[in-house]
Amino acid sequence: MVVEGRFFSGKAEEKAARILVIMLLGVAAVYVAFALTPSHYAVGLRYLGVEDASPLLLSARPIRSDEWIVLTPLFQTAVRGGFSTINQISPYHESLKGFWALPILDWSLVFKPQPWGFWVLPPAYAYSLYFAALWATFLAGYARKFP
């Protein structure tokens, strides 16, 4: 049966979708195995005096400093603070609840699966899994929406 406007019939389309998901999971597994992230935190380390710190690929632009100077340290604060909803590191004890899905232990964890890796993996791999989950689900969603 050929559906008008589609490249594959029903069975072939399902097989292609399965192959795509397997390939996507394979790429995500390699990404996490090497603990890669889109973070340019190495730029921040250079400012702290670490001479040989540099991003693996490309270069960081100052306009994107919100990622390596805000987001990555927030993740570090949540992990080092024992996944508390309150910043245990700072003397101000501000809340870590916000629009980023930080690995904090509260009821909202049920609705944000991307930080689940922080409870079973070392932090570098969990941070990599966080970003891999975001881009993999993004690509899988578009593959499902536009077959």
Rank of each mutant, 00 (worst) to 15 (best):
P113A: 04
V43D: 10
E67P: 00
P55Q: 13
D106W: 05
T77Y: 00
G98M: 09
Y47D: 12
K112R: 15
V79P: 02
I104G: 00
P62F: 07
F83V: 04
L121F: 11
A60N: 11
K97L: 05
P115E: 00
A132I: 02
V79L: 02
P103G: 09
G44F: 11
D52E: 13
K97Y: 04
L56W: 11
L71N: 12
R64Y: 12
I86R: 13
Y92M: 13
A133K: 01
W100C: 01
Y92W: 14
L109A: 10
P62S: 03
F111M: 06
A60Y: 06
V79E: 06
L121V: 07
L121A: 08
L58Q: 11
E51Y: 08
I104A: 02
I86A: 03
F118P: 01
K97P: 00
Y130S: 01
L129H: 07
G81D: 03
E94P: 03
A124L: 13
D106I: 08
L58H: 08
D52Q: 10
E94I: 11
L48T: 08
L129G: 02
Q88E: 14
T85M: 07
G98A: 10
L109T: 07
L45Q: 15
W107V: 15
W119E: 00
S54E: 13
Y130L: 08
S59E: 15
I86T: 15
P103F: 03
V120N: 04
R46F: 01
G49W: 08
A133N: 08
I86S: 03
V120G: 05
L56F: 12
A101G: 02
L129R: 08
Q88G: 00
Y92L: 15
A124G: 02
L102N: 01
I86N: 00
I104T: 10
T85P: 06
D66T: 12
F83W: 09
A53N: 09
D66S: 10
S59K: 15
P73R: 06
I63R: 12
S128T: 06
A132N: 06
P91D: 07
L105H: 14
S108K: 15
A101F: 00
I63Q: 11
P91Q: 08
G81L: 04
P122Y: 05
S90Q: 08
L57V: 14
L121N: 02
S95M: 00
L102Y: 00
R61Y: 05
L96Q: 04
T72I: 13
V110E: 06
Y92F: 14
T85S: 11
S108F: 04
V50H: 11
I86E: 12
W68M: 02
L102Q: 05
Y47I: 08
Q88Y: 01
P103M: 04
P103E: 02
G117Y: 00
H93W: 09
L134V: 07
F75L: 05
V79W: 09
V70F: 10
